[in-house]
Design a protein around this nucleic acid. Structure first.
Length: 703
DNA sequence: TCAACTCAGC
């Protein structure tokens, strides 16, 4: 406060500034009330005073007050009228601007240019062009505004013609052309204009540098950067991002450290740079050391955590952002929504939904789809459908989200119902739609219907089946044991079968114990994805189930030789808005470890009493029976179930998440646990949902 | 002192 006062005193006493410029000064600072005070205190208000205060209100997005003042002006000049046009345009009111333009007593080149600029800003290029060719005289600014409109619409060839026709080309027009060419990757043409420029400013240099950096020529960008006469913060940031976006973090860091002023934008770029290149800790270090953060800093850090699988960190950071009373912005809310979806954290998801509503972000179609996906992944289909139904018009992504959602929950009938409704309401299904529909049929064993839809994709819907769709078809056939037909289908594919297709066949072979075809599929898979642990594990599980321990050992050796690691299984559960994570065979880090272990012992006893015997064929290792039983008991999904039985109120279902597919033995065990304890248990694994109740699972043992 | 124009990040 004291700062502001002294600042103001210095300003008003240093020079004899006119009151009108004081009005502008305050308006620019966003202190429109102070500007108004100066205006109201004027004994004599000239037309310039009126113009200044009106412009001030428009600058501060208060068009009503500006309008009232304009209507009450004692006299107006052409600048007043032009100010009204540009004011409306600043506030996005193009129709009002045009009304003023049509009724004003006289127009000059500024009036025309302002109006054209308004159309360009709204993307109404046709209207802009009509006015441009109609205007009685043009100057370099009018030409440049029109040029900018064409470039904005990516009409570079039209822009080039207009540019050639310009009688005078100034720095702005040339720089704009350079930027336009760079965005299209036409670096040679951009460079030609740059080289021909009689006078270059920092902006031109920066545009050229950005152009090279965004088109995989970061070293050329660096050369220009080294020789340019003067750099500003934007230049440094552009160079920095050139390096971060191609993953050259050492050079990015050099630039960052050499920067004279580390702007917030540059820091944010470093956060994203480190984070997206797999160095989340370093990103966090930059974040923590920042002198001041903007909302971009927070959303960048949250995005990094979300994309790199640090879901809990993302949630924590989002919470501390709110504790610091930083208003969540659009990108951070979207990131956190996706975190809620992957964690299946329904409580957090609901909170974020409420915030989206409060800030009116939920009116966005993209957000609606993200919300639907979140509710589906959290297992709340009713709420997902509610968001879906409440939003019109619906785009294809929304339809696809809900269809895929039903598929993951094993509700083929609902998925097909929505699919037909979508088609009859005039939305053309795309390839994603069919993945959802075919998966739905596959998960429920609707083989004939699924195959029928697969056959009709091209003929009825004009959608060319891709490898993913073939994978679904292979899955459909494979699930019911028609493995040879599946193999036939693969051999007659018009495109090369990929890992997903072979994976589907391998899964079927495992279920139906078709050892010979399994080996074929697994070997194909190993060729395509030598680093993927999946085929090694499937194959060695297959050998293990037949007691071929030597072959199992060979697979393990192969895995080690190619340094393939089995992705560790982990499960988690949300209790009281807190996520509890368990990894296989180890819950010792959990504060309630002892109680959990006791519960697991008790469950094992209950299962034995119910006549349950563990199915050892699901275990990978060649170990004796007793240890096998132990390994099964401590699979992460069982630990999470035990914790859920301890913590979740009796009337509520227990919701568990697992990062891999549920293990076959756990699946049998949880069915029984649900029956013995009378609880409903919902398990989301990597592929789909399992709802266990009364000794049965909603997947009907297909998964 | 009042009206029309280009560059980075979100």
């Amino acid at each position: 406060m004291r700062f502001l006062l002294t600042h103001y005193r210095a300003f008003s006493t240093r020079i004899a500034v006119s009151p009108n410029s004081q009005i502008c000064y305050f308006a620019r600072l966003g202190q429109i009330k102070n500007a108004r005070k100066v205006f109201d205190g004027l004994p004599e208000k000239t037309v310039v005073s009126w113009n200044s205060i009106i412009s001030g209100y428009f600058q501060n997005n208060q068009h009503r007050e500006a309008q009232i003042l304009f209507d009450n002006m004692p006299e107006r000049n052409i600048i007043s009228w032009n100010g009204l046009i540009s004011g409306y345009i600043k506030n996005g009111m193009i129709t009002e601007a045009r009304k003023v333009f049509d009724k004003m007593p006289e127009r000059n080149v500024v009036s025309w240019t302002a109006m054209i600029r308004g159309y360009v800003q709204e993307g109404m290029i046709r209207e802009a062009e009509v006015l441009f060719w109609k205007m009685p005289e043009r100057n370099v600014v009018s030409w440049t505004v029109m040029l900018g409109g064409l470039i904005q619409e990516c009409r570079m060839d039209d822009a080039c013609r207009l540019y050639d026709a310009m009688p005078v080309k100034d720095v702005v027009a040339r720089t704009n052309m350079i930027g336009g060419y760079c965005k299209e990757g036409r670096l040679r043409e951009a460079r030609e204009i740059f080289d021909e420029m009689p006078r270059r400013n920092v902006v031109a240099w920066t545009t050229m540098i950005t152009g090279y950096a965004q088109n995989n020529r970061v070293d050329v960008a660096r050369k220009l950067f080294e020789v340019m006469p003067e750099k500003n913060e934007i230049t440094w940031t552009a160079m920095l991002m050139g390096y971060t976006q191609c993953g050259r973090m050492e050079e990015a860091l050099d630039i960052f450290e050499a920067m004279p002023v580390k702007s917030v934008a540059a820091c944010n770029a470093m956060i994203l740079g480190f984070g997206m290149n797999g160095q989340a800790e370093k990103a966090r270090m930059v974040f923590d050391r920042m002198w001041e953060k903007d909302d971009g800093s927070w959303s960048a850090m949250i995005k990094v955590y979300e994309r790199k699988g640090f879901e809990l960190e993302a949630l924590n950071l989002f919470a501390s952002m709110q504790k610091k009373r930083v208003r969540p912005n659009f990108p951070s809310l979207i990131s956190i929504l996706s975190v809620c979806a992957s964690l299946a954290s329904l409580d957090h998801g609901r909170q974020v939904h409420a915030q989206l509503v409060r800030f009116q972000f939920d009116l966005d179609m993209y957000v609606a789809s993200a919300l639907i996906t979140m509710y589906i992944k959290c297992g709340d289909l009713v709420k997902a459908k509610q968001v879906f139904d409440g939003f019109t018009p619906k785009d294809i992504v929304m339809w696809n989200s809900i269809i895929t959602g039903y598929a993951q929950h094993g509700l083929a009938e609902n998925a097909l119902q929505v699919f037909h409704k979508m088609f009859s309401s005039g939305i053309i299904p795309d390839d994603i739609t069919f993945i959802g529909v075919l998966t739905a049929c596959s998960y429920t064993g609707n083989v004939d219907e699924g195959l029928q839809i697969f056959e009709s994709m091209r003929s009825k819907y004009n959608v060319e089946p891709k490898t993913e769709h073939y994978a679904c078809a292979v899955d459909l056939l494979g699930r019911v044991g028609r493995v040879n037909e599946a193999m036939n289908l693969i051999e007659n594919m018009p495109v090369e079968a990929d890992a997903i297709v072979w994976g589907a066949l391998l899964g079927a072979c495992r279920t139906h114990k078709k050892l010979d075809l399994a080996e074929v599929a697994a070997k194909k898979l190993l060729q395509l994805e030598p680093q993927n642990a999946g085929p090694y594990i499937l194959l060695s599980n297959l050998y293990a189930s037949q007691g071929r321990w030597n072959d199992v050992a060979d697979q393990r050796k192969n895995m080690r030789a190619r340094s393939v690691n089995k992705f560790p299984g982990c499960s988690w559960i949300e209790v009281d808005k807190k996520v509890h994570m368990f990894t296989m065979a180890d819950s010792s880090g959990h504060p309630e470890h002892a109680v959990i272990m006791k519960m697991l012992e008790k469950l094992a006893g209950l299962l034995r009493e119910a006549g349950y015997s563990p199915d050892g064929s699901f275990v990978l290792h060649d170990v004796d029976e007793e240890e096998k039983v132990n390994n099964l008991r401590y699979h992460s999904e069982k630990v999470a179930v035990a914790y859920g039985l301890l913590k979740v109120p009796k009337e509520l279902p227990i919701r568990i998440m697992k990062n891999l597919r549920v293990c076959g033995d756990c699946h049998s065990a949880i069915k029984l646990i649900a029956k013995i304890t009378g609880r409903e248990i919902i398990l989301r694994d990597a592929n789909r949902f399992h709802r266990f109740k009364d000794g049965l699972c909603s997947c009907r043992d297909y998964w």
